[in-house]
Design a protein around this nucleic acid. Structure first.
Length: 854
RNA sequence: GCCCGCCUGGCGGAACCGGUAGACGCAACGGACUUAAAAUCCGUUCUUGGGCAACCGAGGUGGGGGUUCGAGUCCCCCGGCGGGCACCA
């Protein structure tokens, strides 16, 4: 027996799979399909451990489902547009396309070392015109369908990246990528009308049972549906009125002011003739999103000359403020303030000496005695001081007041969403060009389909800030397809989230003439199991859900929901190391001295060991997957990834852990070779009888098969790994030479090879071949447990006295209750614990526990 | 501030539907093999008391309370950690 050689073995089996085209897939209506997809990577240059974890999990699922008879689609591609390529162009003077493709080549080679069961014939890169031309074509469809539109709007402007960001890309007032404080600017922007599907996107979340509840909740909150009312306040001495949106129309009689957003048209109108108002509005805008601490920003208002009339009471006038805390983008951009029942309104009222009228009284409090002090009352209760609403519950009052407003023509029930339309314009080169032409005579004209794709000019320059497409001398100058006059091409490109919103559909028919081939997408979609990081819980997953609906509307697919199952994996973490002068030190540069303290290998100086954190370049606590694969092999890396930590939780990468996995790989290899001399040949006839030891090991084998099957079905990879360990420990107990043992040994090691097939595919193949099987394991079916062996004949039953364990007893399975009780009560330890007292009650849970109560 | 999740040995974690807490791995310690080391193999390891021992007892799943014959698991309160949203009317 030779030592296990991971390099030769892994290369050999990868070549075998490639040669047999084991993972190339076609539609086959005769077989059940299973579409497994991991979130495709951005080609940053090198794969990292997060990728390894993600793709290992996906590969386990793909190989497992394949063995269980599914026609499995498991593709891979590249999310290839994006800023880093452009930054490389600026910094390293290399063209984004060249940079991107070089990275893809390198990462593909790295991924291939992992032995993933991918159908590489379907590989796509989103920066390829053969991909994005379909995106452009679908955009034209969306435009026709009214799902894409352009509007002048306030945008989040990233002054470093010199581009617009979606709301979702602004984190704590900073650009998600550059970290720069975001400014507010008014620009003409393209939008996708995601709000058109707001209700549907929300409701369908309830029909995604195989999504984590956490993700569904996050999307629910993000969509933010609220039920309320739109109320019209007439302006005193004018025909005009102010519309407000409220979720608490029941508190209308507690109103003491109206507040307008600084961006409200009426506020702007006031500003145009009132210098003080104008100054205030400008102050609000400067604040915008650019201050990190909106939270601490003071609530301020400017009192206008306007008065409005209460819609439900005679001669009740309310003052109108312009306020810095009212958002134009939500509701109507105006609110009515009810200080008694809203904390922010209460603070505002105190600041500007406005009345506080309590109109909801908690149940059990007297209407006279209860009043609001410095804390607004937002709970449930009964209406008071509210005319026709008095005595009603909040719930009933809402209904009644809305009915009254509707009858008077002063308002109506309305639903609002927090969700905003998706701004997709980016002032960047390395993205998909938006296929429209702006003609001074004809306005916005779609690029005719025959002129697609609109490709990026290759000779763009990256030496000055801003959009290279805008700077390009000729690219944007075109003739209008309608009037043939001079016109300008749209120089904005799509947000890269557009490409990732439909790539999974393209994988079904990656070479189709049209964006999709209906036969293919109807066969494969939806994705049965999608796997990726929880950081995409909102943006990517919501956009993709929107996109499927839009694509369905244009006839490209017949499903609304792209991902039937979703699994969000945890992060890969590692200890951090810092030198005395504060530098981060990479794990590869760390050594341990004789006292067991960490030192920097190069300088022999001690380093401080910090807590385990997500692997990141900035903390330098990364471990290079390729180096691990070179040293230990892909199977070791995969095995360690799957061991110990549940896949949805963060895991810690440790050198000891990898070593442990490596030892196990070698132990299994040795065990099979040592067992072989006393092992029945494949397909040997089963002996007529097994002795107790043999029968016990057979039980262990079949329980392992059954357990691992369930574990893999439920993403409990760590448990599956533990079960394989248990099985190999059990097999090691077989030390005899007899015919029965030889047969059980065969059964056991065959089972192990099959069970680790999805987990450590190369080692599994090598063991399978060493076990004298001719055909490769990759085409072998998944083992099936013998149900007879899953049931024990004898069971160990715990015996408690007053809930405390006193003894255990071996009984035949399904023993008669009375018999079990008799045996238990006779046990010396039980008799002792009962101390002469009579049993008041005996609880017998069959095959499990007996509890004697005295 | 609002919403959600989590808390089990030295560590990662097991524990089906409320039924023997600590599977499996890591680490540590002891031993075997070896001139020695590595590798490998065997054994021990929740805490604590008693015993030469096999063993016998007590306590134990963040803290407190409750439901139950029985709670890591269910309920209430408190604490800690993590995540999401955050002027959303």
């Amino acid at each position: 027996m030779s030592r296990y050689n991971h390099k030769d073995t892994e290369a050999k089996w990868q070549a075998v799979w490639a040669e047999r085209r084991s993972f190339e897939t076609r539609e086959d209506p005769a077989k059940p399909k299973y579409y497994v997809l991991e979130m495709f990577p951005y080609p940053s240059g090198r794969i990292h451990m997060g990728h390894v974890r993600n793709y290992t999990m996906g590969d386990v699922v793909a190989r497992f489902k394949r063995a269980r008879g599914f026609n499995v689609l498991h593709p891979m591609g590249w999310d290839a547009f994006g800023l880093p390529a452009e930054n490389a162009a600026i910094e390293a003077k290399i063209h984004p396309a060249k940079w991107t493709h070089a990275n893809i080549d390198q990462m593909r080679a790295q991924l291939k070392l992992m032995g993933l069961s991918l159908d590489w014939s379907r590989e796509i890169a989103t920066c390829d015109p053969a991909y994005y031309k379909h995106e452009q074509r679908m955009f034209l469809d969306f435009l026709k369908a009214g799902l894409a539109y352009r509007k002048e709007s306030w945008v989040n402007w990233d002054p470093i990246d010199m581009t617009v960001l979606a709301n979702e890309q602004v984190i704590d007032g900073r650009g998600w990528r550059s970290g720069a404080f975001v400014e507010r600017r008014k620009l003409n922007q393209w939008f996708f009308k995601i709000t058109h599907f707001a209700d549907d996107l929300l409701e369908e979340l309830d029909r995604l049972p195989r999504w984590p509840e956490k993700v569904r909740l996050m999307q629910r909150n993000w969509i933010g549906r609220s039920t309320g009312a739109r109320v019209t306040f007439r302006i005193k001495g004018s025909k005009d009125s102010i519309e407000v949106y409220t979720t608490r129309p029941d508190t209308l009689f507690g109103a003491s002011f109206i507040a307008l957003s600084a961006d409200h048209p009426l506020a702007e109108a006031i500003g145009s003739r009132d210098a003080q108002a104008r100054a205030f509005i400008e102050e609000c805008r400067r604040l915008g999103t650019s201050e990190a601490s909106i939270e601490s920003a003071e609530k301020k208002g400017y009192l206008t000359q306007l008065k409005v009339l209460h819609p439900l009471a005679k001669d009740w006038e309310l003052p109108v403020y312009v306020a810095n805390f009212v958002l134009m983008e939500y509701g109507t951009g105006a609110i009515f303030g009810c200080p008694a029942h809203d904390q922010r309104d209460l603070d505002f009222a105190h600041k500007y000496n406005l009345p506080v009228r309590t109109v909801v009284v908690p149940v059990g409090e007297g209407a006279k005695s209860f009043s609001v002090g410095f804390e607004a009352y937002t709970g449930d209760g009964v209406l008071a001081n509210s005319a026709f609403l008095d005595g009603l519950t909040v719930e009933d009052a809402k209904k009644k007041v809305v009915a009254r407003l509707e009858a008077l023509g002063r308002g109506r029930g309305e639903v609002n969403f927090r969700l905003r339309d998706w701004g997709v314009s980016r002032q960047r080169y390395w993205g998909c060009p938006i296929p429209v032409i702006n003609c001074p005579a004809c306005g916005t004209v779609p690029v005719p389909e025959k002129d697609l794709p609109v490709t990026l000019p290759e000779d763009a320059t990256f030496d000055k800030p801003g959009n290279p497409l805008e700077h390009h001398p000729s690219w944007k100058h075109v003739t209008c397809p309608v009037c043939a006059g001079p016109a300008l091409r749209e120089t904005d490109t799509f947000d890269t989230f557009v490409e990732s919103s439909w790539y999974f559909a393209r994988f079904c028919s990656p070479k189709a003439e049209a964006p999709t081939d209906r036969t293919a997408v109807d066969y494969w979609l939806p994705v049965d199991q999608y796997i990726g990081g929880v950081e995409h819980a909102i943006l990517h997953l919501l956009y993709a859900r929107f996109y499927m609906r839009a694509m369905r509307g244009s006839g490209y697919v017949s499903v609304d929901e792209p991902f039937a199952g979703l699994f969000t994996q945890g992060m890969v973490c590692h200890e951090t190391y810092r030198s005395a002068d504060g530098r981060w030190v990479a794990p590869a540069e760390i050594a341990w001295n004789e006292q067991g303290t960490a030192i920097e290998a190069a300088t022999a100086q001690p380093v401080t060991v910090g807590r385990s954190e997500k692997m990141s370049k900035s903390r330098k606590n990364t471990v290079d997957p390729t180096e691990i694969i070179m040293t230990y092999g892909a199977d070791t890396a995969r095995w360690f990834m799957l061991s110990d930590s549940p896949p949805d939780r963060d895991m810690e990468w440790t050198a000891e852990g990898v070593e442990g996995a490596w030892r196990y790989v070698n132990r299994l290899w040795r065990a099979v070779h040592q067992a072989k001399p006393a092992m029945a040949p494949p397909g040997a006839a089963r002996p007529a009888r097994f002795d107790d030891t043999e029968q016990a090991v057979r039980r262990a084998i079949h329980k392992a098969i059954d357990g691992v099957t369930h574990d893999l079905d439920q993403f409990r990879f760590n448990r599956a790994v533990a079960r394989v360990h248990e099985l190999s420990n059990a097999l090691a107990e077989l030390t005899g030479q007899g015919e029965g043992q030889a047969w059980v040994r065969r059964e056991g090691y065959d089972a192990i090879a099959r069970l680790i097939g999805p987990l450590m595919p190369h080692l599994a193949e090598a063991l399978w071949a060493a076990l004298d099987h001719e055909a490769p394991l990759v085409d072998e079916p998944w083992p099936v447990a013998d149900p007879v062996l899953l049931i024990d004949e004898m069971v160990t039953i715990a015996v408690q006295v007053n809930g405390k364990l006193r003894a255990t007893v071996e009984l035949p399975r399904d023993a008669v209750q009375a018999e079990a009780e008799r045996v238990a009560l006779a046990l010396p330890a039980v008799v002792k614990a009962m101390d002469g007292r009579a049993a008041r009650r005996v609880i017998v849970v069959p095959n499990r526990i007996i509890n004697v109560v005295v």
